[in-house]
Simulated scan of single mutants.
Amino acid sequence: MPAHPTGRTLAERLLNEGQRGFPLSDRPFAQMGKALGATENEVIDTCVRLAERGAISRIGGVWAPGVGGAALLCAMAVPPERLEAVAARVSAHPGVNHNYEREHSLNLWFVITGTGAEPLDEALTAIGTETGLPVTRLKMVRPYRIDLGFDLHRPATRGSAIQRRPPRVEPADHALAALVEAGLPLVPEPFADWARALGCTTADVLARIQTWLDAGTLRRFGLVVRHHEVGFSANAMTVFDIDDAQVDAFGERLATQPGITLCYRRERAEGWRYNLYCMVHGRSRDETLGLLHAAIAGAGLAGQPHQILFSRRRFKQTGARYFRCTP
């Protein structure tokens, strides 16, 4: 295959351009290949290789918060000598999709998702019992920005804040939603495979996905990259203690700053006074700190109490399970 005028490989272009606007058509890989100057088989084979090396977790949907199932951010203070063992126990729970060591006395942070609040409560109770350690639960109150798409070639740009809560996924559509979060099969007509499994037409599948995208129920549909594997290896969660009457205004401003990938309000917890959170991902610690300090200044948060918690180790990173029942 001839070199692309940009000098970038097909894999590099797919990683960047395939995260949003993935074709919703009978033969999406052929359509994407046409746009990228490649054949259908070349696109499929490249996606297979990207998945095998962990650069992408799947080609599928990223749900808006609150459109189905339940999720909680949790934290634990684990004695350093027990951290790996406790992290392994936490990661063993199928609903845990992100599990990180962070630079803080609360040193193990994980997200757990499930089809409802009851399964989450049962799993967290089990984690507390198995480890003999308390689990701090930090429920989301309001999302301001949720966007883990990464432009691999351009500097961080301003985003937009979430202004409305999108409609939830109807129970009748949960089977399709489970497929959307699990990811497309890497075959020429992947949506037809889904249609056969659901007993409907490909047109029905494509129309429902487009409806979710138009309504904001799906934030995007496309390649879901794993940020460490594509070079964004330094991530920092920053937490702020903001007066409850002002937190929404600050959150909306913070969400629009360049480099902010996640921004949301959470409930405070016993011994944890922070209620505004944001995430910044960079290629180095210095780059991440530069983006973060600029975002804090741009949002008018420089005088507010806050802490920066860089990740040290990633123990687990998989897709959320809002619609797939965990074993």
Rank of each mutant, 00 (worst) to 15 (best):
A299K: 06
Q31S: 14
Y274V: 02
R158E: 10
A51I: 09
E252Q: 14
P143V: 07
D173L: 14
F250D: 04
L301D: 00
G66R: 11
R8T: 04
L206P: 00
L301I: 08
V205L: 01
E52V: 04
G303L: 05
P5I: 10
D121K: 13
L218S: 06
G114P: 07
S233G: 03
L50S: 02
T157M: 11
C200K: 11
T202E: 15
P80W: 08
L218W: 06
A245L: 12
L184I: 08
V141I: 15
Q257V: 02
A64D: 09
L184C: 04
E229N: 13
E130Q: 15
L152M: 10
W212H: 05
P305K: 11
C47L: 15
A11H: 08
D26K: 10
R285E: 15
A203G: 10
E130I: 11
Q210F: 04
L73S: 10
P134N: 09
N99K: 01
R266V: 09
V230M: 05
M1H: 13
S57G: 15
Q257N: 02
L289N: 12
R142N: 01
C74H: 08
Q210H: 11
C325P: 09
L15H: 02
T131K: 03
F22S: 01
N16V: 14
D243H: 11
A234R: 13
R145T: 04
A88F: 00
A207V: 09
E103H: 12
R89K: 13
A215L: 12
P258V: 06
R49T: 11
H104L: 09
D241P: 00
N107V: 04
P2Y: 04
I112Y: 01
L309P: 00
G60H: 13
R219C: 02
Y274A: 11
E270P: 00
L108V: 08
G61N: 08
T318C: 06
T113R: 11
S160I: 11
R314K: 13
G18W: 01
T318N: 07
G282C: 09
C325S: 15
R13A: 01
Y277A: 05
S160M: 13
A172M: 08
Y274H: 15
A175N: 10
H93N: 09
T238G: 01
A87R: 03
H4L: 02
A126F: 07
G61E: 02
R313A: 07
G159A: 12
P28G: 06
A38C: 11
R314N: 11
N107D: 02
L179V: 00
S105N: 09
Q246P: 00
R53Q: 12
A85Y: 09
L24S: 04
D204G: 03
L262T: 05
P190N: 13
N275P: 08
R145E: 03
G116C: 09
N99F: 01
L24T: 07
V78D: 00
D241E: 14
V225K: 00
